[in-house]
Design a protein around this nucleic acid. Structure first.
Lengths: 338, 338
DNA sequence: TATTGGAATGTTACCGCGATCAGTTGCGCG
DNA sequence: CGCGCAACTGATCGCGGTAACATTCCAATA
């Protein structure tokens, strides 16, 4: 309990309990044979001193680090905490521990964060997206540890991959919208150079529209700010510019919700006069006056699958490393279900 | 680029560039005098090999770890990512790096997470709340590193503290509500044994009401699920049970928003017939049909202040370590501003 | 020319722990 | 009675770096 300033070591516990450091180490790690008597002695001494093992030294000596680097663009997007929670849940049953790095959607920052994390020699990497700088891909490749790229399935992974095809998600939503009879379709989303997955959805979306000779009649992009408010503003702007719009496809549920609230306030018939759809299926939004049409991005499942792959590979178990999940459309109350 | 399976060491770079390991180390850390020629040689070799320094070894040797443990209850609460972002922003300008641990509001898990993090010998700890297990407090104390407890100011910190007084927040909200003339007041919130800050707000709240001879006429608690939907459900339940309620105080903005949407749908006059208030001032919710009355919890500022304290202490700079921020009430459109 | 000092580089000794191997006991069994 | 083995404990070495000190070399100075 009494503490100078230098933190305790095995030696301190060893001296306090009258056995060798090695034996203390064995007790604390529950490894090898130790008599019940010494075990108690050691544990008591350790507790009394308030000893906390030094994982840095332990990791260096054993060449094993039970950390998994998880690299994601943002924490405020809600999507990522959900993925994280899937990862944590699976890793909880192992000796592995997730460590999160945030890139703010910036490739250079991603590279930097990755470098930092790799310098701790983690047991695996879970990283969002398939697009990385050349250097980042090289590092991942050279690291020699399991790597799972998540959230996206449109592209070539360095190693393993768990995600959905956003192109397909865009295509399916477009198909559903067309099938429901909407033709004057607008798109509202984030500025996309940063967000490859939003871009791919948009590409898939326009591709299917084009096949039916339909073009997006209006579009609007935002960045930053409160998504709900932005959805409201952008919707207002679009309706002003293009009053004949009969459907709005939002690149995420949050701005979709803003749009929905706005339209309801204006007394516009949803989905009769105007249909709406978002993307992600965020649970957060249950409780809106109407349920927004959306597409589940399988976030939690992506997290669990990715963690399972890492856990398996760390234990040298072979495991399928290319998983494409199928997002399911949910019509909610804002898209006529035909 | 070519990689066996064992990762590279200084020795590899040293051999590749024909200088000693020490010199390589100096170049890579930008420390000490190295001629421009050797510097180039070394950097080239390092890049070519794809060398990533081993921080584990470095940390052990130098007895310095530039990590700051940040321990919070949850990532899905929105409040915490905001605090985190404040922390990151400040640490970005230093050599320190935040590492996040999540406790799920469970004291035992907090203790476990803390133990894990301390075993990596971080340079500092930022931890939410003032309530911890005895063992956790002991560990914090014994660690000998700067500790900042955040979000709360009602209690005694182990070391430093940055937060608001939730009791006071509750009191002020109660005063504002009474002043506006409401008397039949209901409280909706989370099940509180877990959430000390919500509990303290409630305590402060009832305390002021009591002084005016007012008692909460109804209350309801939830846990889990979509906060928006819960707010809606609970509001409905309360109105059914206590139709004469004229004000509802929610323990967070999200359930408040759910209640707001419900009341508007029902055509109830807000804030005439029923007033509403939440807590937190989440930016997310700008964009609701009406702006919910709320109280800013200074989340971002808490993050920055806490990080500044850690940064200062790490560099042995003295700095005031007891900061109580003042939350400000924002009346929005759901509380009559008298 | 001898001396000095600083820049550039190398050498040595750990950092705190775990893998490995080497004892030391005690006990059952032939 | 001694052998073999299991149960337990300890000593040594090295993981991959860095701090601190030692050395080399050469230009500037007296």
């Amino acid at each position: 309990m009494t503490q100078k300033n230098r933190s305790l070591t095995l030696r301190d516990v060893s001296e306090a309990s009258g056995v060798s450091e090695m034996t203390v180490s064995r007790v604390l790690r529950n490894r090898g044979d130790v008599s019940a008597a010494t075990r108690d002695k050691v544990l008591t001494a350790a507790k009394e001193l308030g000893y906390v093992p030094n994982k840095i030294a332990g990791a260096l000596a054993s060449q094993r680090v039970n950390l998994v680097a998880v690299i994601i663009p943002s924490l405020s997007n809600m999507v990522f905490p959900e993925v994280l929670s899937g990862i944590s849940q699976v890793l909880e049953d192992t000796e592995l521990q997730p460590v999160v790095g945030v890139t703010d959607y910036l490739p250079e920052k991603e590279e930097k964060v990755l470098y930092e994390m790799l310098s701790w020699r983690p047991s695996g990497v879970i990283i969002a997206g398939l697009e990385h700088t050349e250097a980042a891909r090289a590092m991942l490749h050279a690291s020699g540890i399991p790597v799972v790229e998540i959230m996206d399935a449109d592209g070539d992974p360095v190693d393993a991959m768990v995600g959905i095809s956003h192109r397909r998600a865009g295509r399916e939503m477009a198909a559903a919208i067309l099938k429901a009879g909407y033709r004057k379709i607008a798109f509202l989303g984030t500025k996309m150079p940063l967000d490859h997955r939003a871009r791919k959805r948009f590409e898939g979306f326009t591709e299917v529209l084009a096949k039916s000779g339909v073009e997006v009649v209006d579009r609007e992009f935002y960045s930053g700010g409160s998504a709900l408010a932005k959805g409201r503003e952008m919707t207002e702007a679009v309706l002003e510019r293009s009053p004949d719009v009969d459907f709005i496809y939002y690149s995420n549920d949050m701005i979709g919700a803003g749009g929905l609230l706005y339209l309801l306030e204006k007394g516009i018939d949803v989905p009769g006069q105007i249909g709406l759809a978002g993307f992600n299926g965020v649970e957060l939004l249950q409780g809106l006056p109407r349920q927004l049409a959306t597409m589940d991005a399988c976030r939690r499942e992506i997290g669990t699958k990715a963690a399972e792959i890492i856990a398996a590979r760390v234990n040298d178990v072979e495991k399928d490393g290319l998983i494409t999940l199928a997002p399911t459309i949910s019509f909610g109350d804002t898209l006529r279900d035909t």
